[in-house]
């Protein structure tokens, strides 16, 4: 989260099997739920304000959002993959 390219994602909370990561940029906010178990990590839409509000949400996967949303979560995903590869 902290080593993600561009703007940092910050800790917003945690629960059983997930961590919430928040991203604020120019007044728009996106909160992703990073779900994990022993073998998998998956990013899911949790909530958002402004430009990043999902327009088509199915099972907490957002299928219609702004280009920025997909770019920023792509960067978050990449940084998680990079960290996992170090383990």
């Amino acid at each position: 989260m902290l080593s993600t390219k561009g703007y940092k994602w910050l800790f917003e909370g945690e629960g059983q099997g997930y961590i919430l990561a928040r991203f604020d940029y120019r007044g728009d906010t996106n909160i992703m739920r990073i779900e994990y178990n022993k073998s998998l990590v998956q990013l899911k839409y949790h909530s958002a304000w402004g430009d990043y509000v999902c327009k088509k949400l199915v099972d907490d996967i957002c299928y219609k959002n702004s280009r920025g949303y997909y770019n920023y979560i792509k960067n978050l995903r990449k940084s998680i993959v990079a960290k996992l590869n170090l383990l």
Partner: peptide, 24 residues
């Protein structure tokens, strides 16, 4: 109001950053 909201959000980000480090 927009400026104030922006600065307060920046303050929140600064707090959240250090909390993220502490949680990690």
């Amino acid at each position: 109001e927009e400026k104030i909201q922006g600065w307060l959000l920046r303050l929140r980000k600064a707090l959240a950053y250090d909390i993220t480090l502490a949680v990690r």
